[in-house]
Simulated assay, not measured.
Amino acid sequence: MKTCIAFICVATLVVSIRGLKASAHLECQADPKTRVNEISIKRFNDGEDIDKSAIGVYALCLSTKLNYINEEGKINIPIVKKFFSYLFLNETVVNQAIERCSNAQKDDPQDTAMALAKCFRESYNDFHKGNNLNH
Results as ranks from 00 to 15, higher is better:
residue 133 L to N: 08
residue 78 P to S: 14
residue 62 L to I: 11
residue 84 F to Y: 15
residue 101 C to A: 06
residue 84 F to N: 06
residue 54 A to G: 01
residue 33 K to D: 10
residue 27 E to Y: 14
residue 29 Q to F: 04
residue 76 N to Q: 14
residue 114 M to N: 02
residue 53 S to T: 12
residue 32 P to M: 12
residue 50 I to K: 00
residue 59 A to Q: 05
residue 129 K to L: 09
residue 111 D to E: 15
residue 8 I to S: 06
residue 23 S to F: 15
residue 10 V to L: 13
residue 126 D to T: 02
residue 51 D to G: 07
residue 120 F to C: 08
residue 104 A to F: 02
residue 134 N to C: 14
residue 5 I to M: 13
residue 46 D to W: 05
residue 124 Y to N: 09
residue 1 M to I: 10
residue 121 R to L: 06
residue 114 M to V: 04
residue 38 E to L: 10
residue 73 G to A: 01
residue 11 A to M: 11
residue 18 R to K: 15
residue 82 K to I: 05
residue 120 F to R: 11
residue 130 G to Q: 11
residue 91 E to Y: 07
residue 15 V to D: 04
residue 7 F to T: 09
residue 31 D to W: 03
residue 91 E to G: 07
residue 56 G to Q: 04
residue 11 A to P: 03
residue 102 S to P: 01
residue 75 I to F: 08
residue 106 K to R: 14
residue 28 C to L: 08
residue 103 N to V: 11
residue 68 Y to V: 02
residue 34 T to A: 09
residue 104 A to W: 00
residue 92 T to E: 15
residue 59 A to F: 01
residue 41 I to F: 02
residue 77 I to M: 09
residue 90 N to S: 11
residue 84 F to M: 07
residue 2 K to I: 14
residue 47 G to H: 06
residue 109 P to Q: 04
residue 68 Y to R: 11
residue 62 L to N: 05
residue 61 C to T: 00
residue 70 N to M: 08
residue 86 Y to H: 11
residue 36 V to Q: 12
residue 130 G to S: 09
residue 128 H to Q: 13
residue 102 S to W: 03
residue 99 E to S: 15
residue 69 I to F: 07
residue 84 F to D: 10
residue 5 I to N: 05
residue 37 N to I: 01
residue 85 S to G: 08
residue 129 K to T: 01
residue 97 A to L: 08
residue 97 A to H: 04
residue 101 C to Y: 03
residue 6 A to L: 13
residue 31 D to T: 02
residue 82 K to S: 11
residue 124 Y to G: 00
residue 88 F to N: 03
residue 63 S to M: 05
residue 97 A to N: 07
residue 23 S to D: 14
residue 130 G to I: 08
residue 29 Q to E: 12
residue 45 N to W: 03
residue 61 C to M: 02
residue 101 C to F: 06
residue 4 C to R: 00
residue 11 A to D: 11
residue 10 V to A: 12
residue 7 F to G: 06
residue 69 I to D: 03
residue 126 D to V: 01
residue 120 F to V: 06
residue 122 E to N: 10
residue 100 R to P: 00
residue 49 D to Y: 13
residue 87 L to W: 04
residue 111 D to Q: 09
residue 6 A to E: 15
residue 41 I to D: 02
residue 107 D to I: 00
residue 115 A to L: 10
residue 93 V to F: 07
residue 124 Y to K: 11
residue 25 H to E: 12
residue 23 S to I: 12
residue 119 C to G: 11
residue 65 K to Y: 00
residue 50 I to M: 02
residue 37 N to Q: 12
residue 27 E to M: 15
residue 35 R to S: 10
residue 64 T to C: 10
residue 104 A to N: 01
residue 107 D to G: 14
residue 121 R to Y: 04
residue 117 A to T: 06
residue 17 I to N: 06
residue 127 F to K: 12
residue 13 L to H: 08
residue 61 C to G: 01
residue 133 L to R: 05
residue 68 Y to E: 13
residue 87 L to K: 07
residue 30 A to W: 12
residue 96 Q to P: 03
residue 33 K to I: 03
residue 86 Y to L: 06
residue 17 I to M: 12
residue 95 N to W: 11
residue 72 E to R: 13
residue 25 H to G: 03
residue 76 N to T: 13
residue 120 F to D: 09
